[in-house]
Amino acid sequence: MADRKNTVTRTFLNGLITENPTFTLMLGMCPTLGVTTAASNGIGMGLATTFVLVCSNLFISLLRKIIPDKVRIPAYIVIIASFVTMVDLFMKAYLPDLSKSLGSYIPLIVVNCIIFARAESFAAKNGPVQSLADGLGMGLGFTASITLLSIVRELFGSGTIFGAQIMPESYQPMDIMNKVPGGFITLGLMMILVNAIKKIIGKRRAARKEALA
């Protein structure tokens, strides 16, 4: 039992850090570049995607033995689309402002490649508990990275974070950060940072192993 728990945690952490969908797998680039102009957008988009990802992973995993192989893509789309519709209607009802600023990106979660990739490569092959952990890990990994990205973009693009003024009054907002090129540049710079941190951690680990041996 302890062993199984261990793999569930590992699956969760794999999605959150090791195979982070944004910085390592480079999946879901469309919302990553499109909506990350404000921190609240980033977190809203991330959580909406996480909900859909967790639910679709769970249901696809449960139904994986029933769905015929030849029609699996349409079947996945139906499952994913139902959850996206739920999120869309929920946000329209309870978070109308966020829903308005995310616009068509919420319905577009249906074709988000993170969700498809996880359905095809994970949920269709693994049990429901594992798939749940994978969906949660991947979803939160996506949320964390696009929130970070949108915090940086909002800070430079508007001088605020979550709408609170951070930069001094005299700061002139860097408008390119609110446009797609700013997203590309920020993403590239953050990937440099993430890779550098990974390299340092890897070196430390190797050094520790050597010291132990």
């Binding site: 408008d175 950060m177 090129p181």
Partner: peptide, 10 residues
């Protein structure tokens, strides 16, 4: 180009 897009007015 970055300056032009970012601070167009200036």
């Amino acid at each position: 180009a970055v300056l032009f897009v970012s601070w167009n007015a200036i």
